Amino acid sequence: MTDRFEFSKLFLGTLAAVAVILFTVVGIQTTWSTYVVKDYNKHLTGQVYVEAAVNQNVNLVFYRNGCPYCKAGKKAVITSAEKSSYPTFYIDVESKDGQILVEKYHVDKAATLVTIRDGKFELFLYADKDKNGQIVADQKKIEERLNDK
Rank of each mutant, 00 (worst) to 15 (best):
S84I: 14
T45G: 09
G66L: 09
Y49M: 14
V107K: 07
L15F: 11
V77W: 09
T112D: 06
R64I: 01
A52M: 10
G27W: 10
L125Q: 04
L60H: 03
V93G: 09
K74W: 13
E51L: 15
A110L: 04
T31W: 14
L60G: 02
G133M: 06
P68C: 09
E103L: 09
L146T: 13
V54G: 00
I135W: 02
D108H: 14
K38L: 08
K140L: 02
E51Y: 12
Y105V: 02
A53V: 04
N59I: 15
V25P: 05
N59S: 14
V48W: 06
A52W: 08
T88Q: 02
A110N: 03
L125D: 10
H43R: 09
A53W: 01
A72L: 06
A19G: 08
E82V: 07
D138F: 11
E94F: 06
I78P: 01
L22K: 07
V54D: 14
F121I: 08
K109R: 13
L60E: 05
K71E: 02
G133W: 01
V37S: 03
F124I: 11
K74A: 10
T30V: 10
V102K: 10
Y35I: 07
F23W: 00
I91C: 07
T88L: 03
V58S: 03
K104D: 11
V102I: 12
Y90V: 15
G133T: 05
F124T: 10
V102C: 07
I91P: 07
V26M: 08
C67T: 09
D39N: 03
I78R: 04
K74H: 13
E144K: 08
G98V: 09
A17L: 14
D130P: 07
A110E: 01
I142K: 01
K71T: 10
Y86P: 00
L123W: 04
A127R: 01
A110W: 03
G119Q: 04
T30E: 00
Y35V: 14
F124M: 04
G73C: 09
G133V: 12
C70T: 08
T30Y: 02
D118V: 13
D128R: 13
T112Q: 04
Y63V: 00
Y49A: 14
A127S: 00
K120G: 00
G98Y: 08
E94W: 05
K83M: 03
Y86R: 04
F124L: 11
T88I: 11
Y69P: 09
P68H: 06
F124V: 03
K74Y: 08
F89W: 06
Q139P: 07
Q99S: 15
K140H: 03
G119S: 03
L146Q: 02
T24G: 06
K109Q: 14
F121Y: 10
A16K: 08
S80R: 08
T88K: 08
A72I: 02
L22C: 05
A81V: 12
V136R: 05
G73Q: 12
I116F: 02
T31A: 15
V50L: 12
K96G: 09
R117Q: 10
V77L: 03
L60D: 05
C67Y: 12
T79A: 15
L15A: 15
I142C: 00
E122R: 11
K104R: 14
A53N: 00
V50E: 13
Q139M: 11
V54H: 14
T24Y: 06
V77S: 01
K42A: 12
I142M: 04
L146K: 01
S84W: 13
